[in-house]
């Protein structure tokens, strides 16, 4: 049994990605020994948190066959929102809760467009992305909204010091949410229904799963997490900008898909998504460490995605071959 599990792991997508990550870390460390310094790891953890937080809600949606391309602008809008209400003197814990509810409302509106009006999630959320971006500009007048409530700053900026290493709070939020949602996806009835509606909507309907209900919950969840992400980012900067975070959702989606989450729904998980996201972020960090010229960095970022996809393609082919061989043997 253990041998079987080990063999399965070696043939999994995650293994291929982890192998790439290890090779990459060795290569970048040879280029700059500080790549694996405590300071850089800590900085890397801070940087991965924004896309990581967005990825949690996004992965759940992707697995269900939906998508929220407005997640980044929802986070941005939430950042402006929390900065604005903090400016009115509201205590930050109250402001944070209201902001998360505000994010949930944005998610609910997305769900309304998709589930009630029947728009495609892809199109509806692109449209809403533009609306939120515009509203962020209207509210902020196009300039950064600074925060004077100093109690809010540690929410995004605090680190737990462990010798030379500092563990940033936003990274802890990210890991905790990944674990909680990973468990929900894997071990709860609701989690299984997400896979079911993503994999086969008709089968889900016939099995008594309310597709609209699950989808609505996931959009609300995605909006709420995006709002939390926006609030954390705003705390980290001690100000909210009308351009902040917008576009980061694409990193989240890329990481998720790279980590095995199907864009069509029904497969993948948060573990794989985290590895995918880790690969992308560690690679970007490494390119700066070796001082690769900017435009080559952009080329290289696309290149690493292609390499990972090619490795995955051949891995998938070998998995399918192995399954066919097993089926033939069984027959």
């Amino acid at each position: 049994m253990t041998a079987q599990k080990t063999s399965k792991f070696f043939r999994s997508k995650s293994f291929a990605l982890i192998a790439i990550i290890i090779v990459m870390i060795i290569a970048f460390t040879l280029g700059n020994k500080n790549y694996i310094s405590a300071g850089n790891i800590s900085g890397f953890m801070t940087n991965i948190s924004t896309a990581g937080l967005l990825a949690v809600g996004m992965v759940c949606l992707l697995i269900s066959g939906n998508v929220d391309l407005a997640a980044g602008t929802e986070a941005c809008m939430a950042g402006i929102f929390v900065a604005t209400i903090l400016g009115s003197g509201m205590p930050w814990p109250v402001a944070l809760i209201i902001t998360i509810l505000f994010g949930a409302a944005m998610g609910l509106f997305n769900a309304f467009l998709v589930n009630v009006l029947g728009f495609m999630g892809f199109i509806a959320t692109i449209g809403m992305s533009s609306v939120y971006k515009g509203l962020a500009l209207v509210v902020s007048n196009g300039i950064n909204v600074s925060i004077s409530n100093q109690g809010f700053y540690p929410l995004g900026a605090y680190s737990i010091q462990m010798g030379k290493f500092a563990l940033p709070l936003p990274f802890i939020y990210t890991v905790v949410l990944f674990v909680i949602y990973g468990l929900i996806l894997k071990y709860t009835k609701f989690g299984r229904s997400i896979y079911l509606i993503g994999g086969n909507r008709n089968a889900a309907r016939l099995a008594g799963v309310s597709i609209k209900k699950v989808s609505t919950i996931l959009y609300i969840n995605c909006g709420a997490i995006a709002a939390f992400c926006g609030a954390v980012s705003t705390a980290k900067m001690n100000s909210a900008g009308p351009q902040a975070i917008s576009g980061t959702e694409m990193d989240s989606i890329a990481g998720a898909v790279l980590g095995g989450v199907s864009f069509m729904g029904g497969s993948g998980g948060l573990g794989g998504a985290f590895i995918g996201l880790f690969l992308i972020s560690a690679f970007k960090n490494g390119l700066t460490a070796i001082s690769l010229p900017t435009y080559w960095q952009t080329v290289a970022q696309g290149g690493i995605l292609l390499i990972a996809l090619v490795v995955d393609y051949f891995g998938e082919r070998s998995r399918v071959s192995a399954l066919k061989a097993e089926a033939a043997q069984a027959a």
Binding site: N32, N34, Y35, S37, G39, N40, S42, G43, F44, T46, N47, T50, N144, S233, K236, M237, S239, G241, Q243, A244, I245, S246, N285, T288, A289
Partner: peptide
């Protein structure tokens, strides 16, 4: 093109 971007890149350069 944002404060967040400036934060990410500065963090990397300082720490590396």
């Amino acid at each position: 093109f944002s404060a967040e971007g400036g934060n990410q890149l500065s963090t990397q350069i300082y720490s590396q």
